[in-house]
Amino acid sequence: MQDRIICLGNRLKQEDRAGLQVYDRLFKRKLPQQIELIEGGISGLNLLCFLENVATVVFVDAISGFTHPDGVVVLTRHQIETASQCLHYGHDAGVAYLLAMMPRVCTPPLPRDIFLVGLEGQCSEKTIEHAADIAQDMVQTGKYGALPKHLHYQTGKIY
C-alpha cells in the first residue's frame, strides 16, 4: 500500500503558501516509489479520495498560532482534530474538517497514521527545506519501522 504526502495551501496568498513551497522542494527530489506526492492546494473535500487505500498520510500546510513564526510543528491526527472547533464545510475548516469526515464517508482501508507538518506563517527557505526533510523522513521511516522512539506515533493519542 502506498504512502502519501499531501501538500496544502494557496500559492496565490503569501501566508498560506508554505505547504506548496514544500511541495516544490519535494517534487524536485527523487522520492521512493511508494511515496505519492500530491499538490492538494485548496481542494478541501475533494481530497477525501486520497485518504483511501493508503498506509500513512502526511499533510504539509501553513498553520497559525501553534509556535513562533518560521517554526515547524508536527501534529498527530488527534491533535489536528482537536486544535480547531471549526468543523463545518468551507475552506476555513481545512484539514480538521477533512479528517472528521474521513471515517464517516471514506471506504476502508483508511490510513493507519496521519500527521501534519505545520509551518507557522511565512517561512524562510531554510525552514521550507527542513519541513520537506521532516515530511519525507516521517513517511519513509514510518514505512520501515525505523522511526526514532520519540517519533513513534499512535493515531489519536495525545503526546
Binding site: 496544502l8 498560532g65 501553534f66
Partner: peptide, 21 residues
C-alpha cells in the same frame, strides 16, 4: 480562500503537545 489550520484561543503560544522543530 484561506484554509490555514488555526489553533483556537490565543495565537502564537507554543503548542505543548506537538513537536516544535
Amino acid at each position: 480562500a484561506v484554509h490555514t489550520l488555526k489553533k483556537d484561543g490565543t495565537p502564537h503560544k507554543k503548542f505543548h503537545t506537538g513537536w516544535t522543530f
